[in-house]
């Protein structure tokens, strides 16, 4: 399986005197989290399929600093940012794609002031552009007619007004897209943002991911689609908590598309 994946690094491109079309920023979750790694691989399969000349930073990549900044550690954030920017500028990176809305938001919005100016795309936007250019075709495959609800990641939706790219891709699967009562600009958070992912929640009467999962279950979905590795974790936990993991899958959009092509 793994030999099928072509994952060149920036260093290799540099050594060959070439520049890739786009840098795939994998992110910490995509690199280390077992669930998120599957998303990373699914996206790479699609990039390979579409013959996209991409590269990763590999061991030269480091946390964007998002959880540090949102925890209040501005110093650590900026140290991370400046270090990453130095690496990317040395490679003369112009365009970045990432499957993590937190990395997406940070690099797109908070890096420019610190000297990092790139065109940054979320992987759903990038896949949509591949589709538009005819480099990738999507068939519904196993998802034809399935009820799919999409959970808007805060840092993709409200934070950056990207609501349609992931939905367009779901529609391309010939799936039945059903919306939760809070969606798009009023989408409810999964509970992981603002560094909550890394700590126990404060005292309350419910966990945020349970509340959100309940909203998702109201739509009677067969699949809950996500566009963020952290949302994915939170929603997966929520579905398990409701003992629905055998009926409802939580899947990233990239996984849905890759699976539909039997990649």
């Amino acid at each position: 399986m793994s030999e099928l994946l072509k994952v060149p690094t920036m260093a290799e491109f540099m050594a060959a005197g070439k520049q890739p079309e786009v840098l795939f920023w994998v992110g910490c979750a995509g690199s280390f989290d077992d669930r998120a790694k599957k998303i990373t691989k699914a996206f790479v399969k699609l990039l390979n399929k579409a013959n996209v000349e991409f590269a990763v930073l590999g061991t030269e990549e480091s946390c964007t600093g998002d959880p540090a900044k949102r925890s209040g550690n501005e110093f650590l954030f900026q140290m991370q940012a400046v270090t990453n920017i130095e690496v990317m500028n040395a490679y003369e990176i112009k365009k970045i794609v990432t499957a993590c809305p937190h990395c997406f938001n940070t690099i797109k919005n908070e890096y420019p002031e610190l000297g990092g100016n790139y065109e940054v795309m979320h992987h759903t936007q990038f896949l949509k552009s591949l589709l538009a250019e005819g480099r990738l075709t999507i068939e519904g495959g196993q998802y034809k007619g399935k009820r799919i609800t999409f959970h808007d990641p805060c840092y993709l939706g409200r934070a950056n007004q990207v609501y349609e790219a992931p939905r367009d891709l779901i529609r391309k699967l010939d799936a039945e897209l059903v919306e939760m009562k809070s969606c798009k600009s009023r989408g409810l958070c999964c509970g992981a943002g603002g560094a909550q992912m890394f700590k126990e929640p404060e005292k309350g009467n419910k966990d945020v991911n349970i509340e959100r999962t309940e909203q998702a279950l109201e739509t009677k979905p067969q699949i809950i689609a996500a566009g963020c590795p952290f949302c994915n974790t939170m929603m997966t936990d929520g579905v398990k908590n409701k003992e629905k993991e055998n009926d409802i899958a939580v899947m990233d959009i990239a996984e849905l598309i890759a699976n539909a092509q039997d990649l």
Partner: peptide
């Protein structure tokens, strides 16, 4: 360089 205690040198291990 990651919020979890993983070595930065292992960042590309997922590929294999």
């Amino acid at each position: 360089g990651a919020p979890w205690p993983y070595n930065q040198m292992d960042r590309l291990n997922w590929k294999d």
